[in-house]
Amino acid sequence: KELVSALYDYQEKSPREVTMKKGDILTLLNSTNKDWWKVEVNGRQGFVPAAYVKKL
């Protein structure tokens, strides 16, 4: 599985998104959309802005 690192804090703005803190390591589930990537963090799945994470 592919991992990404959070470059910035992000506070979810809808139920489809997830909150992350800078430095968090997230499991990348889907990166086909260039703007929003689906990740899993702390057992929750949702979307984060692609520009806020980088692949490890």
Rank of each mutant, 00 (worst) to 15 (best):
T19E: 04
G23M: 03
V48M: 01
L29M: 07
Y52M: 14
V48D: 01
L56Y: 10
A6I: 02
F47G: 01
L28S: 01
N33E: 11
V4W: 14
Y8M: 12
W37F: 08
N33C: 12
L7R: 08
T27V: 15
V39G: 00
K1V: 14
W36D: 02
K13E: 08
T19Y: 04
V39N: 00
P49Q: 02
D9K: 03
T32K: 11
T19H: 05
P15T: 10
V18C: 08
L56W: 10
G46I: 04
A6N: 01
K38W: 15
K22T: 08
I25W: 06
D35T: 13
G46P: 00
Y8L: 11
K22S: 08
E17G: 13
A6M: 02
E12C: 13
L56A: 08
Q11K: 13
Y52I: 10
T32A: 12
T27S: 09
Q11L: 13
L29G: 00
W36K: 02
K54F: 09
A50N: 03
G43M: 05
D35K: 13
V48K: 00
G23N: 06
K1P: 14
Y10M: 01
Q45K: 10
L7Q: 07
D9C: 07
N42V: 05
V53Q: 00
T27I: 15
L28E: 01
V48P: 01
A6W: 01
V18H: 03
R16E: 12
L28G: 00
D9F: 04
S14Q: 08
Y52S: 15
K21A: 09
E2C: 15
L26V: 08
E2M: 14
D24Y: 04
R44Y: 06
K22V: 09
E2T: 14
I25C: 06
P15H: 10
L56C: 13
D35E: 12
V39A: 01
T32R: 10
M20V: 10
W37D: 00
K54S: 13
G46F: 07
K38A: 09
S5F: 15
K38L: 15
D35F: 15
K55N: 09
V39F: 00
T32I: 09
E17Y: 06
E17D: 05
L3Y: 15
L29V: 12
S14I: 05
K54A: 13
S31P: 06
D24C: 07
D9Y: 05
K55Y: 12
R44G: 03
E17S: 07
R16Q: 13
D35W: 15
Q11N: 14
S14N: 13
A50C: 08
K55I: 15
G23K: 03
S31E: 14
E40L: 07
E40I: 07
V4C: 14
E40C: 11
K38N: 07
S5H: 13
E40S: 09
Q11E: 14
T27C: 11
L26Q: 00
W37I: 05
K38V: 14
E2K: 10
A51I: 11
D35M: 12
